[in-house]
Simulated scan of single mutants.
Amino acid sequence: MFRSLLFALLLLLGHSALAQQPVPYGNNPAAGKYAQVRGVKLYYETYGAGPPLLLLHGNGGSSKEFAKTIPYFARKYRVIALDSRAHGKSVDRTDSLSFEQLADDCAALLTQLRLDSAYVLGWSDGGITALVLALRHPEKVKRLAATGANLWPDSTALMPELWQQMKRGYQEGRTQTFTDPTRRNDWKVFLLDWRHPHIPLTALAGVKAPAFIIAGDRDVIRPEHTVAIYQNLPRAWLWIVPNSGHATLHEYADEFNRKVEAFFQARNIARPTR
């Protein structure tokens, strides 16, 4: 009897320990799949059920960046956390990247998943991709939230410290020959932000989807640049997060998630009256 009780207790504790294991977002065999899209094998993970929500990560990152985002939204949405081409587990053997490529990949993936459209949440490069997706494939975007996005690559959009760091990185890398595939891929990913994007402010008038533009007040994106993005969108909300850097969705995860969901659910996206 005692041995049976002890065995049951150990079994219960074992199940409890397993239940407390963190979900390996970005490397979760239970949720991960591959899709052959536009000649590239894209990796994505799906969580929850409901209206589709596409999550787009930043430069050099992967879907694991959304570990504080996915659990919240998976309660009400079908969350699709994508590794962009040449990032995470998505392999891309081409020699260059552009945000147009990334946006077209997103549209093709949604089509392959038989989704007419989706809500979109992008961070940094993912925010840029979200805006480009809304411009190139307006029918695919219900609403978009973009945090830490920029429209062009120079010191008028990026804070001086980051721009100088990028200039040094380019000077050091431009004469090198990368034989190691990993370093060659890293250089291609770096060049994405060095050379792109190139979105005129006037082009934002073509974004039909309501947009929520977000940045930290200590972001690597100039605050005036973020405000200009907001001002040139037809229907938009703006949130400059106090006491936050570039990682708004990590530093203030709970508030970030609540505000983004409130935007997705809002009946009216009119600008506040002055």
Score class of each variant (00 low, 15 high):
103 A>R: 01
108 A>W: 00
108 A>T: 06
112 Q>H: 12
113 L>Q: 10
116 D>L: 01
117 S>R: 12
118 A>M: 03
118 A>T: 10
120 V>C: 05
120 V>Q: 13
121 L>Q: 07
122 G>A: 09
122 G>H: 13
123 W>R: 04
123 W>D: 02
128 I>Y: 02
128 I>E: 00
129 T>C: 04
130 A>Q: 12
134 A>F: 15
136 R>L: 11
137 H>Y: 08
137 H>A: 12
138 P>F: 11
139 E>P: 00
142 K>S: 05
143 R>K: 15
146 A>G: 01
148 G>C: 10
148 G>H: 03
148 G>E: 14
148 G>I: 03
150 N>K: 07
152 W>T: 02
153 P>G: 00
158 L>E: 05
158 L>C: 05
160 P>D: 13
161 E>D: 09
161 E>Y: 09
162 L>Y: 10
162 L>F: 07
164 Q>F: 01
165 Q>T: 10
166 M>F: 13
167 K>W: 02
167 K>V: 12
169 G>I: 05
171 Q>C: 03
172 E>M: 12
172 E>H: 07
175 T>W: 07
176 Q>V: 14
177 T>Q: 13
178 F>H: 13
178 F>N: 14
191 L>G: 03
191 L>F: 04
191 L>C: 01
193 D>H: 09
195 R>V: 00
195 R>S: 02
195 R>C: 00
196 H>V: 01
199 I>F: 08
202 T>K: 15
205 A>C: 01
206 G>C: 06
